[in-house]
Structure formats: C-alpha cells, structure tokens
Amino acid sequence: MTTLALKGLSPHLTYLLRLADDQLILGHRLSEWAGHAPMLEEDIALANIALDHIGAARALYQHAATLHGDGLTEDDYAYRRDTRDYLNALLVERPNGDFAHTIVRQLLYSAFALPLWQALMTSSDTTLAAIAEKSEKEARYHVRHAGDWFVRLGDGTGESKARMDAAIAALWPYGGELFETDATLAAAIEAGVAADPAAIEPLWRDTIEAAFDESGLPLPDRPGRQTGGRSGRHTEHLGFLLAEMQHLQRAYPGQRW
C-alpha cells in the first residue's frame, strides 16, 4: 500500500475532501478523550460526538470515492494520504489541551458546521445534500453541548474562567480560516455544489456572540487568519495525529478486519 498522492482533483472532489477531512480529524481528536475525560458522562458524550464526525467523514469519503473512480475506497483517503494531501482547516487538528480547549475548539467548529450543513441541504450534489440533512441534526446537538459547557466554564470558577481565557487566546486565531474562499471553492460554489462561507459567517457570529455574551467572557476582535490547511499546509500537530491514526495501515499495508 503506497501513499496516495492526489493531483488535479476537480473543485467538486476537492470540496468533498475538505469537508470530510474536517470531520475525520476532529472526530479523531475527540476520540483521544476516550478513557481520559474529566468525568464518565463527558467521556461518553465526547465519544458520541467523535462517532458523529467520523460517520459523516465516512459518508463523504465513500461519496468522493464513487466520483473519483480508480477503485478507491474510503480507507484510501483516511489511511494513505500524507499531511500535505489532507485539506482540513487548521482549527480541527489543534491538540485537545485541557477540557476548555476542547470545548472552545468544538464550539468554534460546530457553530460553523451547523449553518454549513443547513446550506448544503440544497446542494446540487444530491448525495451531499442527503449527508448534510443527517449531519445537521447531529450538529445541532454539538452546538448545544459545546455551547452549554462554554457558558458554564466561562461563568464558573476563577480556575475555569482562566482556562477558558487561555483556550480562546490559543484557538481564536484559527477561526477565520473556516470562511476563506479560494478559486477551488469559488468554482464549487458556482457549480451549486458548495455553500458560500460569506453567507455562513454571520450565522456563526450569532452563535459565538450569544455564547460569549451569556458566559461573560470578552469577545475578541474578528477571528485571526492562521491559514494553509485547505491547501495542505498544516501545523506540526497533524503529522503526529496521522502517525497514530494510520499506524496500522502503514505497518501492515492492506490489512483488513
């Protein structure tokens, strides 16, 4: 099993992989909490959310593989690509940190994913629209779960507030990348496949501002633009994540259950 290098993908296929990679990488990050969460209830909650994300990733990869042809499967995308061929936003590969980091990352992402899925329910790609319809319900719960914790930790003890401040300072710079448009995305929007992030950003802001408002935490200025993930330029953290996630397929190429 060799590394899969993806060259010259259509805007449609690239868009599907960007969506799927966000879901897989965030799902994997959340799965790292299994057995380590602050309490049993959250251990199970985070594992549930991880499985929602990984389930969406699988559906998107299967759809991409069908469009792609060449006998590719979902596993090829997940286990045979190196960091430069992953197209997830940098936000989702950020390490779990403490529970505050995980909650801030989850709210920043889920507040984006919910209106994104809602917009994609009318995509010209009917398979993508069906995946969006299923994922939208899951995302509604993710926003609620992360939002409720965001408020309680922000408006909790001095310790929890200090940890939230640190988490927001660390992750806020990665918020802006979610709303970037490049030529590939513009072409996918033009084709009616993709959702325009310009229409999603105000909805994201509404959710985020409401959470900050209720928590009493100060809302920072516009999110920063640490960028590069959508074109395969990642932080050093993704390589370590992939090394663990892909270990079995790299050590025993083609191994199956």
Binding site: L40, E41, I44, A45, Y141, R144, H145, D148, W149, R152
Partner: peptide, 14 residues
C-alpha cells in the same frame, strides 16, 4: 452534572 440542562445532556449521552 452541574445543573439540570447538563444533566439532561449527560442522560441523553449515557
């Protein structure tokens, strides 16, 4: 759970 809303979520998840 710290309060009723989080208890509902935890019950849903568990």
């Amino acid at each position: 759970a710290a309060d009723a809303a989080l208890a509902l979520q935890a019950a849903r998840d568990v």
